[in-house]
Design a binder for these strands. Structure first.
Lengths: 237, 237
DNA sequence: GGCTCATGTAAAAGCTATTCACATGAGCTG
DNA sequence: CAGCTCATGTGAATAGCTTTTACATGAGCC
């Protein structure tokens, strides 16, 4: 009960790291109660400061949300960059790793994810945020360009940009509808990862890519995440 | 200024149709300011009643939101049913009409759409809502089943349910990322409809469907919604 | 030591959600 | 048609949030 005062006594008049503490508190709150449930006053309480203190660091509640979305895009970009790993060991493998990373981010960082995509923030009204968002998307586009370059030459194919948008929409659709631990999730007869992997493989086949990969093909050894069966889905009936 | 009292004089003590009026007011507010910006008190004001009146019709703010989502799913189902039109004049044409209907709904009914998909409502905690959601999805599943039945027999193919989930995720991804008039939209070098149509066509080709449809194929005459070019996308470079 | 400014606090105004006791009148009942 | 009843509204009150303003504190610098 005397929690805040204890903290106050501990730290003195000045917090010392309030901005960080508020961001962290907001993240916790958002992951618990969604971006709508998060409260400026709650974050202040959690940091042990008065309700007015946060205004020294953020113009208003929305600016705090924007900051979180901003960080989210940065972490997202880092994660996608790492997953893509410049296309190693081979383009298709790396490509699928990016898809899985997308889902992993949505699942492991629901607070970031909802601040980024579901908070109703006007992304295009905030240049900084927009830029961060585009840097993240650029990873997907780079991957799509690499993929487009190795597409079978005989077939007509869409611009790399369009491929990137296709992949983005698939990933985002699966993540939004089925990917969170949220109550907003829908039941699914399989994992989101399996669903997305199959979707992307069918799409790539539609572009003329051979997709009959065997687990030993070019991937490093290890437990295959998907049991090898007839294809990206279960045994055909 | 004496607006509410005028209304009050007009209608007397009892509103007569308050529940409907509140739902309509909430829709207006949500389409203007997003699901987070909508306020119970505002809706009451707009209907010309006291802030306590809505509680005679909805347990709380969330129940009103749920009702809107509920209606949204019903209208959505009706729209998809009409678009699917039981697969006429041919399965693929009808299928694409469903995709367009999905985008049209997101664009024309942003308030419903956000209440349904972005309000953070616990869909799976509300059986009625869940059921409505599933009825809407059932249309997509029915379409996918019809499509699966006419898939080329030579190729392995995923369960119809999975195809339906794939299509849903594509539609939802495109609609969420690019499909609204919102500020949340991203810039796009093409229309969401074109993007989704190309995506679905590539996917279908990946399943072995021939997708070199000509405008005169089986479609009734009329202005083709997409200018006939080399394929579902622009001229290959 | 003393000054200054970033950082916090307290208090207040204005908003919202929600509840409760009370008012109204629409529609049934006789 | 009189009277009753109950669904539907009202007013007022509580509690919480956001944001602003005047004031307090003390960390860092001369």
């Amino acid at each position: 009960m005397s929690w805040q005062k204890d903290r106050r006594a501990e730290r003195g008049y000045h917090h010392g790291n309030l901005k960080e503490a508020l961001l962290q508190a907001a993240l916790d709150l958002i992951s618990q109660k969604g971006p709508a449930g998060f409260t400026f006053a709650d974050a202040a309480r959690m940091a042990g400061v008065s309700p007015a203190a946060p205004y020294r660091h953020f113009r208003d509640r929305d600016e705090l949300l924007s900051s979180i979305a901003q960080r989210g895009f940065e972490q997202f970009e880092a994660l996608l960059t790492q997953a893509w790993d410049d296309g190693r060991p081979d383009t298709v493998t790396a490509f699928e790793r990016v898809g899985k990373a997308y889902l992993a981010f949505a699942r492991n960082e629901p607070a970031f994810y909802s601040a980024m995509f579901e908070s109703g923030l006007p992304v295009d009204a905030n240049p900084t945020l927009m830029a961060a968002s585009e840097r993240a998307f650029a990873i997907i586009r780079a991957a799509a360009e690499r993929l487009a370059a190795m597409a079978p030459p005989g077939m007509p194919r869409p611009p790399a940009m369009m491929m990137a948008l296709h992949i983005w929409s698939m990933s985002h659709g699966v993540a939004s509808l089925f990917g969170r631990g949220d109550a907003a999730r829908r039941k699914l007869p399989m994992s989101p990862e399996e669903l997305l992997e199959a979707e992307v493989l069918i799409y790539l086949r539609g572009l003329g890519f051979p997709t009959d990969r065997r687990p030993s093909d070019q991937k490093p050894p290890g437990p295959p995440p998907v049991p090898p069966s007839g294809g990206p889905w279960g045994t055909p009936k």
